[in-house]
Amino acid sequence: MRITLFITCYNDTLFPETGKAVVRLLERLGHSVDFPLQQTCCGQMHYNTGYQQEALPLLRHFVEVFRDAEVICAPSSSCVAMMRDHYLKMAEASGDKALERDTALLLPRVHELTELLVDRLGLEDVGAYYPHRVTYHASCHSLRSLCLGDKPLRLLRQVRGLELVELSNIDRCCGFGGTFAVKNPDVSAAMLSEKLKDVEDTAAEVCTAVDNSCLMHILGGLHRQRAGVSARHIAEILASTLEEPAL
């Protein structure tokens, strides 16, 4: 299958290793990966902060760049949720009928990574090897917008060597919320503090998720506290093998 990667702007800039892992994983599974260099950002930050007008050109740009893609994969639950929850409404409100049609045609082809693996490719065992104690943080968008349920956990359970520890209060937000963490840093810190306690209680070495935005927040806290726990996108765990382990 030819899979077109939407890396998302913050993965591109801050977490390139996640993108590399997606490429490695999908190619190992026998698919060809394409990366249109014209891609930028889905518009989530602008839209959710109240800059809906500024987000519309980014929707147009996305549709333009990915118009011909058959299967689009994004390793970010919140960016996929942004598209699914808001793109059609934005296109309708723009009054541009062509954009509305193109958006409606494009959306069913956009998949979050674990959705792609489990639903579209019918996989749970991707042949990964990752000999570490891991806990999984369910991002709010993965839980409530994409309704991923236990798909990421099903993938993790099949990873050889991986010891999966359940995180308490898995449905509770870590307190990132995009610009929320900047506008309400103290309340966000209080939320993070509870999340870090739950993570540390698992005695895991690594906290994983389907979204690097939560992980940036959780890791930021863990690192500041010198907790000795790292955070890593699920793609990096699934890409890891005995021959080429993620370090």
Binding site: I7, P185, L192, H217, G221
Partner: peptide, 14 residues
Amino acid sequence: AVRDLRAIPRQSFR
């Protein structure tokens, strides 16, 4: 104030 931030790596994905 309570979180570190990982620096932007030298090489972007693109």
